Amino acid sequence: MATSNGAFGEFKGKLGNLVSYNLKGKTVIRHIGKSNKKPTAAQLATRQKMAAVIKFLRPALPFVNVGFELEVLGTDKNPHNAAVSYNVKNAIQGSYPDISLDYSKVLLSKGLLEPAIAPAATLTGTLLELTWQVPADMDWGIKNDRAMLFIYCPELDKAVYVWSGARRSTGKDEIDLPLNYVGKELQVYIAFKAGDGKSVSDSVWVGLI
């Protein structure tokens, strides 16, 4: 059912195979309904790319909402859509039907701050420690940046993360993982957020633990 502001005015809701809705103050109209046409190889490849990225980002949504928030400021996009778009274009490997995510190229945060330098991770029991280099001549303006840590377990399809961890100047941070993460493959990422929250760095893939 749709409502209208007149015979030729704006409508909202469903009308035939069209649906209208509001997105950040703008009216969006799109077609709905199923197609009887067999999908092409290119369409199938696109769907598989999207599925791989969306599956990974699902448990990362709160982290991505912080990491891509400034990237979409002043646009019609939301952080999740921007993250999906970037990673579909830049973090996919293989050809259909064997398309998968290249974890080393994934971005969970995108910004202009200096990223982590030579990050590394070690796991002792359930305690994951991350380290990074701190230059002797570190700029005063970034020494109070806070670490953002993200650890994804593909087998469990779950993630743990920290939005505001240790200061950049400390050169290390740690996170206590759930017991069921131990002994499983872990994909580890780090980014930085300014102390005032007004800027972030690109995330960096630390590695596979």
Rank of each mutant, 00 (worst) to 15 (best):
A2Q: 06
T3M: 13
S4W: 01
N5P: 08
N5F: 03
G6E: 01
G6Q: 00
F8A: 00
F8M: 06
F8T: 00
F8V: 02
G9V: 06
K12G: 12
K12R: 15
G16N: 06
N17E: 08
V19L: 11
S20G: 03
Y21A: 00
Y21G: 00
Y21F: 15
K26C: 10
T27A: 11
T27H: 07
H31T: 15
H31D: 11
G33L: 07
K34T: 04
S35H: 09
K37F: 12
K38W: 08
A41H: 12
A41L: 15
A45S: 09
R47F: 10
Q48F: 14
M50V: 05
V53C: 06
I54M: 13
L57A: 02
L57N: 02
L57E: 04
P59Y: 09
V64M: 06
N65T: 08
E69Y: 13
L70H: 05
L70D: 01
G74H: 07
T75W: 04
K77Q: 14
N78K: 05
H80N: 13
N81P: 05
V84Q: 08
Y86C: 08
N87L: 07
V88A: 03
V88I: 15
K89F: 14
K89T: 06
A91H: 07
I92F: 10
Q93C: 12
Y96D: 00
Y96K: 03
P97N: 01
D98C: 13
L101M: 05
D102V: 13
Y103T: 03
V106H: 01
L107C: 06
L108I: 05
S109C: 08
G111S: 01
L112R: 07
E114T: 11
E114M: 12
P115L: 05
I117R: 03
A118D: 15
A118L: 14
P119V: 00
A121K: 00
A121H: 02
L123M: 01
T126M: 14
E129W: 11
T131L: 09
W132S: 00
A136Q: 08
A136I: 09
D137M: 12
D137V: 07
M138Y: 09
M138V: 14
D139S: 14
K143L: 11
N144F: 11
N144Y: 14
A147W: 02
A147V: 02
F150L: 03
P154E: 10
L156C: 06
A159S: 02
V160C: 04
Y161L: 10
Y161V: 09
V162Y: 11
S164T: 12
G165N: 01
R167F: 15
R168N: 03
T170F: 12
G171K: 00
E174G: 03
I175W: 15
L177S: 03
L179T: 15
N180E: 15
G183R: 10
G183W: 07
G183F: 13
Q187T: 01
Y189A: 04
I190K: 03
K193R: 02
K193V: 13
A194G: 07
G195S: 14
K198I: 10
S199K: 07
V200T: 06
D202T: 11
W205P: 04
G207I: 07
G207Q: 03
L208I: 11
L208M: 13
